[in-house]
């Protein structure tokens, strides 16, 4: 069977092997912790997306007579908040904004930071100096302070929060991207590609991108939890979402007055932030070990 003639062999269509990412996916899917985290996140995301069709109570409809009901009250599975609004409903609806503000800045920063880091790392020299020194300026400020400052200048609002968080994450991702790119760039296969006459763009596309994307992606996944917490912080300070919009950070803020009256309910938005953050962190760890296919 395998003794096909040379001609037949060369004419035969090229079989695609199981690629690197398929192998990573297989290893990743075997990791139980990661799979549980993925399932939890998926459930939260799906619930947030399909919230209007879940038959939940109106998240904006309050009532003075049923304020701060405890968790497990019939009809109010997770109790009610300080204005008598259904917590379950608000937590699920809140996921829409919270997840958006948590994930979108990281996605945007991933795109911008990777491009900047790749350019700085591959081209080196003056390009590197300009990009990296500019980045260093941003590093001079603690990220919380930076986010607050930018949001403060731009004014409160969801879009402005996303912009300010993106600005916070771009330097971090750029720095990681640059260091990964620099280390890959020094490997012999890049020199081999240059020796074959390929241009910078081709080398970056074929040889660099595939090798740097993984580690940057893992790092960015880890940032999602930071982003969620920062976004909540902004809302908590009144720089993000405005009431009565349900958003976990904002909810945490408004419920803090009820912390002695009904600590269980008051803690719920925090629990959500914590759960989502830890799930993203676990996923990023799982991804990191799944990508190390040489073990």
């Amino acid at each position: 069977m395998s003794a096909t003639s040379d001609a037949a062999l060369q004419a035969a269509p090229v079989q695609k092997a199981r690629g690197y990412w398929a192998t990573v996916g297989r290893r990743f899917s075997r990791d139980k912790v990661s799979m549980v985290c993925a399932a939890v996140l998926l459930a939260i995301v799906l619930a947030a997306i399909f919230a209007p069709w879940l038959g939940l109570a109106d998240p904006y409809q309050g009532s003075m007579i049923r304020r701060l009901r405890h968790i497990g009250t019939p009809g109010y599975l997770l109790g009610t908040d300080e204005l008598g609004r259904d917590m379950l409903s608000r937590l699920i609806y809140g996921g829409r904004l919270s997840l958006l503000i948590g994930i979108l800045p990281v996605v945007l920063a991933f795109g911008i930071g990777t491009s900047l880091g790749l350019l700085a790392g591959y081209l080196g020299g003056a390009v590197n100096t300009i990009i990296m020194r500019t980045i260093d300026v941003f590093y001079a400020f603690p990220s919380v302070l930076l986010a607050i400052a930018i949001s403060g200048v731009l004014g409160a609002g969801v879009v402005n929060s996303i912009v300010s968080l993106t600005v916070v994450f771009v330097p971090q991702i750029t720095r990681v991207a640059e260091s990964v790119t620099t280390s890959v760039r020094n490997l012999d296969f890049v020199d081999a590609a240059r020796a074959s006459g390929a241009g910078a763009i081709t080398i970056m596309r074929v040889h660099m991108l595939g090798n740097v994307l993984g580690p940057i992606f893992v790092y960015a996944t880890g940032l999602i939890s930071v982003s969620m917490i920062l976004a909540s912080g902004l809302s908590f300070l009144g720089l993000g979402t405005k009431p009565p919009e349900p958003e976990w950070g904002l909810m945490l803020n408004t419920l803090r007055t009820a912390i002695y009256v009904n600590p269980g309910v008051a803690a719920l938005p925090g629990v959500m932030i914590f759960a989502v953050s830890i799930c993203f962190n676990m996923l990023s760890d799982g991804l990191r070990s799944a990508m190390d296919i040489r073990n």
């Binding site: 090229v14 690197y20 490997l187 012999d188 296969f189 020199d191 081999a192 006459g197 390929a198 040889h207």
Partner: peptide, 23 residues
Amino acid sequence: MVFQDSYASLNPRLTIEDSIAFG
């Protein structure tokens, strides 16, 4: 040129065929 480190001189993300066909 052929380099000393046989592993570092091949792109780990490309198949052997892709690596040879790149040039």
